[in-house]
Design a binder for these strands. Structure first.
Lengths: 355, 355
DNA sequence: CATTTTTGCGCAAACGATTGAGCGATTCAG
DNA sequence: CTGAATCGCTCAATCGTTTGCGCAAAAATG
């Protein structure tokens, strides 16, 4: 049986009240005799006392625990964010209950319900994004929430996001500046904040440069690897193949790469690629990957800090949306199609070069 | 204020005892009138009752929670394992409190202490590995533990590991078969189970082929990226550079790759590489990576199942060690140095080829 | 010496759930 | 119609903490 405050009280010859007070450092506040305090602390150590956090949490109505809702821990982007969340939370004295939703809205709803039952003090949620009523309900019931990576325009919550529009805009603009005109986008989960913004960034970049938007070049339906693979396969087998592809997440990129190499094509010679999400191995890929990098660690850290601020101020603070800037890292996965970059081919402009 | 069993009792005009029983499905066992039961269930729904798991756990002395101790969630290998653990646990009705130790033994000790305070029912631990007294103590205090990925020969625990020796042996044997003789290993954290086994696999493979072991070719000290980078830098600048490197974890590989390309060298032409841990992007690297693949998902799943079995049988089962087999995936990061593979260079054997 | 102040500590309620024991009311047997 | 069995439910203790209130003894004050 584990040691309780009671055991200490007995052994030290005081009441459990006094023990509790001493162990909580309320010695001055409750004017406990120094010697008594010392004796209690000693006995606690002797017995290897370990407070029962369940009991404490029940009494105090707080658990010093944050519920973290993630779509997919195995995705490197989320893994990094998670690590930074874990670290920041731990430093602030909070621990983490982690749940995985697999981008499934029903799982998300269930899991949030579970976390509420567990009495977590607050939530950091990277929502699936296609519905938000459960999150709204959570907030209305005094749940303290910070949305991360994805948020809802219709819903006022604390949130930390990246300027996806800007990231996509930068990526596509880069392609255009390198002379690409037929640019496809493999998008992620439809009707989500992140995806909408990225697609909009794509559209706006094209429009800005007066390029007609071809709806057949906007493909894809979720953030999984398989989506990247299938859509890339189809794109590569189109009669008029695009010269460049913009993939909107790291797993999509992974699937897309598989398709490209299966088709015996080379990046960037046969097809150019820009990805959203910079991955560790990006510089070492066959074609070092030009990618939009997000401040992963910062995102996690900010989310936790925002949550804890809120927890301390009892949720009375105004809902803030923090928008961070992604930036494009140019490597070598984009072919330069401009005439001036092709010595001896001064008039060759729009078509993909055959190596 | 959140709804309690009390509120339901009041509204339904019964005692909290009855409510509890109905809500726990003990209707028959305690002979509760069908209509009463129905009324209670209805009221519970109306009020959106959500059980307070803290209170329940306090009373029942179990939390339906597993503590997961990981060295580094952002490491893809651990991320995959974590995901599979999370999924398996959730299916079995358990949730996960996740802590990260950053490969720091003191953090590990602290965090395990915290998890004990939180009353988790069991532990899945991927220990740092340089000490095990705290884990032994945990077990002796009736803590239910499964060690994962790394274990201790001196300590009898349930554990799920990979045959690291075999993996390393396969990797190094492959190098030898391709004609390599000067093979270096960049090892991970010293005096840990995983590392010892991998280094031993390396040594045994060399010995088996009658190759003298050069202690200067056994370098490195931990599993981080920086270690891979630094050691690779040094190896590449040795007067008599090795022809092949065996990196013993994915982050080491990442750092090593950085060093190689910084030195303007190419894999496999200038240096060959075999890695422990297969990563998603391995096939798409400049030199598609020959690597030892571990059954990540299986490891996580087995660990949880083993833990839950134990939980059910109240820890009376014999301590099992499950050893899984890794396998080598041959890609293109190893140069074939054998004479017959070098048409026109029949006598060129041991030295690195200059491209 | 009588009163007030200070010191040092304990009582008991609360947090929300579970559960063995018990207790009236109804039903049944004889 | 009486005693036993069954039904349907409640009482109250318990899990381990925290904390407002209060109380006795010691010390300080006049």
């Amino acid at each position: 049986m584990s040691i309780t405050i009671q055991d200490i009280a007995l052994k030290a010859g005081v009441s459990i009240t006094t023990v509790s007070r001493v162990l909580n450092g309320k010695i001055k506040k409750y004017r406990i005799n120094e010697k008594t305090a010392e004796r209690i602390i000693r006995t606690a150590k002797e017995l290897h006392y370990r407070p029962n956090i369940l009991a404490r949490s029940l009494r105090l109505k707080k658990t010093k625990t944050i519920g973290l809702v993630i779509p997919d821990i195995s995705n490197p982007f989320f893994a990094y964010v998670t690590k930074s969340i874990q670290t920041t939370a731990y430093q602030a004295g909070y621990s983490l209950v982690v749940v995985n939703t697999d981008e499934n809205i029903n799982t998300e709803i269930e899991q949030i319900e579970l976390l509420r039952s567990k009495g977590v003090d607050g939530f950091v949620i990277m929502p699936v994004g296609i519905r938000y009523d459960h999150i709204e309900a959570l907030q209305n019931d005094h749940g303290t929430v910070v949305l991360l990576d994805r948020c809802f325009d219709e819903l006022e919550t604390h949130s930390v996001v990246v300027d996806n529009h800007s990231g996509a805009f930068q990526a596509v603009t880069h392609l255009i500046e390198k002379g690409h005109r037929r640019i496809a986008i493999i998008q992620g989960l439809l009707n989500t904040y992140t995806n909408n913004q990225r697609v909009k960034g794509y559209r706006d970049a094209l429009q800005r440069h007066g390029i007609r938007i071809d709806e057949h070049l906007i493909v894809g339906k979720d953030f999984r690897k398989e989506n990247g693979y299938i859509e890339m396969k189809l794109l590569l087998n189109q009669s008029e193949r695009p010269t460049a592809i913009f993939t909107t997440s790291d797993l999509i990129t992974l699937g897309a790469l598989q398709a490209v190499y299966e088709e015996q094509l080379r990046i960037p010679d046969d097809i150019s690629l820009v990805a959203f999400d910079d991955i560790d191995f990006a510089p070492f890929l066959m074609a070092p990957l030009t990618a939009v990098s997000q401040p992963k660690e910062l995102m996690g850290e900010l989310a936790v800090k925002l949550l804890i601020d809120q927890l301390k101020s009892k949720g009375k603070t105004d809902k803030k949306r923090i928008v961070l800037n992604p930036h494009l890292i140019v490597r070598k996965s984009v072919l330069d199609l401009r005439p001036e970059s092709l010595p001896g081919y001064a008039l060759n402009t729009d078509t993909a070069r055959n190596p």
